[in-house]
Lab assay of single mutants.
Amino acid sequence: NQASVVANQLIPISTALTLVMMRSEVVTPVGIPAEDIPRLVSMTVNRAVPLGTTLMPDMVKGYA
């Protein structure tokens, strides 16, 4: 089972991601792979991401 990136807090729309905002967790459905966390830092989300939500590729500008 692959770990995915999960929001560690509410991430408001257009917020630049930082390490403290994300954690890795094995979830269903599978989202962005946890090993991509370093790549996600400073990318922005294009929607509000509630606490505990799995980050999907279409939620992060420039990721997909």
Rank of each mutant, 00 (worst) to 15 (best):
residue 58 D to S: 12
residue 28 T to G: 06
residue 6 V to I: 12
residue 31 G to K: 02
residue 8 N to V: 09
residue 42 S to D: 13
residue 42 S to N: 13
residue 8 N to S: 13
residue 42 S to A: 12
residue 62 G to V: 04
residue 7 A to C: 04
residue 31 G to A: 02
residue 31 G to Y: 02
residue 31 G to T: 00
residue 37 I to H: 02
residue 57 P to V: 06
residue 32 I to T: 01
residue 43 M to C: 07
residue 49 V to P: 03
residue 19 L to S: 11
residue 48 A to I: 12
residue 41 V to C: 05
residue 17 L to T: 00
residue 57 P to S: 09
residue 15 T to R: 07
residue 58 D to P: 08
residue 50 P to W: 05
residue 4 S to E: 00
residue 64 A to F: 09
residue 43 M to I: 03
residue 32 I to R: 01
residue 45 V to N: 02
residue 43 M to A: 07
residue 41 V to F: 04
residue 49 V to M: 04
residue 27 V to G: 01
residue 36 D to P: 00
residue 9 Q to W: 08
residue 9 Q to G: 04
residue 21 M to D: 04
residue 36 D to R: 09
residue 18 T to Q: 11
residue 35 E to M: 15
residue 51 L to I: 13
residue 44 T to K: 10
residue 38 P to W: 13
residue 55 L to D: 01
residue 37 I to K: 05
residue 44 T to G: 04
residue 14 S to E: 14
residue 3 A to E: 09
residue 8 N to D: 10
residue 28 T to Y: 13
residue 23 R to L: 05
residue 62 G to E: 11
residue 18 T to N: 05
residue 58 D to N: 13
residue 55 L to Q: 00
residue 4 S to N: 02
residue 35 E to Y: 09
residue 43 M to S: 05
residue 19 L to W: 10
residue 49 V to G: 02
residue 17 L to K: 00
residue 40 L to Y: 02
residue 19 L to K: 12
residue 64 A to Q: 14
residue 38 P to I: 10
residue 58 D to L: 07
residue 1 N to Y: 14
residue 45 V to P: 02
residue 42 S to E: 08
residue 17 L to V: 03
residue 46 N to C: 05
residue 34 A to P: 06
residue 41 V to G: 00
residue 14 S to G: 15
residue 61 K to N: 15
residue 11 I to N: 01
residue 46 N to D: 09
residue 19 L to H: 10
residue 58 D to V: 10
residue 8 N to I: 05
residue 38 P to K: 10
residue 1 N to Q: 15
residue 50 P to I: 05
residue 18 T to Y: 03
residue 14 S to T: 11
residue 63 Y to N: 04
residue 28 T to F: 14
residue 37 I to D: 02
residue 53 T to Y: 11
residue 61 K to T: 12
residue 61 K to W: 14
residue 29 P to F: 04
residue 35 E to H: 13
residue 9 Q to H: 11
residue 20 V to W: 12
residue 50 P to G: 09
residue 22 M to A: 00
residue 31 G to N: 02
residue 16 A to M: 11
residue 24 S to K: 14
residue 60 V to H: 03
residue 7 A to V: 07
residue 33 P to T: 08
residue 22 M to T: 00
residue 10 L to Q: 14
residue 47 R to W: 09
residue 5 V to Q: 01
residue 52 G to H: 08
residue 11 I to F: 03
residue 64 A to Y: 09
residue 8 N to Q: 09
residue 4 S to F: 03
residue 5 V to F: 03
residue 35 E to T: 12
residue 35 E to K: 13
residue 18 T to L: 07
residue 37 I to Q: 04
residue 2 Q to T: 15
residue 63 Y to P: 04
residue 35 E to A: 13
residue 61 K to A: 13
residue 51 L to V: 12
residue 58 D to Y: 15
residue 42 S to W: 07
residue 17 L to C: 03
residue 28 T to N: 15
residue 57 P to D: 06
residue 27 V to E: 01
residue 39 R to C: 07
residue 24 S to H: 11
residue 24 S to E: 09
residue 9 Q to P: 00
